[in-house]
């Protein structure tokens, strides 16, 4: 193996693996450190094997995209495992990570009311720090389209927050 590849891989790890771990933890919280390490390792394994495919100008979005696929596969396996377990003992469905984690109840409800795509683009921007250019690389769309989608999703989140707070005022008038 060329040392140059390993040098590049280690630089990618230094600069972006923390963000990849945070991305996975945000979407799986609470998750055990061992499970999180396993998912990060699986992600890094893909990055290592496909090092030539990592775009130099969008390394973090590309790696988070890999993490998203790893997460999706892990969830699929989890669903299959639960389906097997369900034949023996019913297991309640886990709520989405955002619902369990966020202490801001109104924000929880507003995020939950968004579509999956809207919630994803809002959290990728706010939590994972992906700007529209990065979002474009991550989602495979143009930067302009990403900016428009982000703006619209944030608008819908604001509207949902406002609706939720109005409902709360009606339910508990001061």
């Amino acid at each position: 193996m060329a040392p140059r590849d390993e040098v590049r891989f280690r630089r990618l790890v230094d600069e972006h693996a923390g963000a990849v771990g945070d991305y996975l933890r945000r979407r799986l919280y609470p998750v055990s450190p061992a499970d999180l390490d396993d998912l990060v390792e699986e992600t890094l394994l893909v990055v290592w094997r496909r090092l030539e495919d990592v775009p130099a100008d969008a390394e973090r979005p590309w790696m988070i995209g890999v993490a998203r696929n790893v997460l999706r596969n892990a969830r699929r396996s989890s669903v299959r495992r639960r389906a097997l377990q369900a034949t023996l003992r019913p297991v309640p469905d886990d709520p989405p990570a955002e619902e369990r984690v966020v202490a801001d109840v109104a924000l929880v409800q507003a995020l939950a009311s968004l579509s999956d795509d809207d919630r994803e683009i809002v959290t990728l921007n706010a939590w994972d720090g992906l700007e529209p250019r990065d979002l474009a690389a991550h989602l495979g769309i143009s930067a302009n389209a990403a900016a428009v989608r982000l703006s619209r999703a944030r608008g819908r989140l604001r509207a949902a927050l406002a609706r939720g707070e109005d409902d709360a005022k009606e339910a508990h008038p001061s």
Binding site: R10, V13, G18, G21, R25, W48, V101, W127
Partner: peptide, 22 residues
């Protein structure tokens, strides 16, 4: 949104063993 970030308080650090294995 920033206040509600589940990973905001403790950023993830990759264990050295993970990189060596990969």
């Amino acid at each position: 949104l920033a206040a509600a970030d589940p990973a905001g308080a403790h950023p993830y650090r990759v264990p050295a063993g993970v990189v060596a294995r990969v």
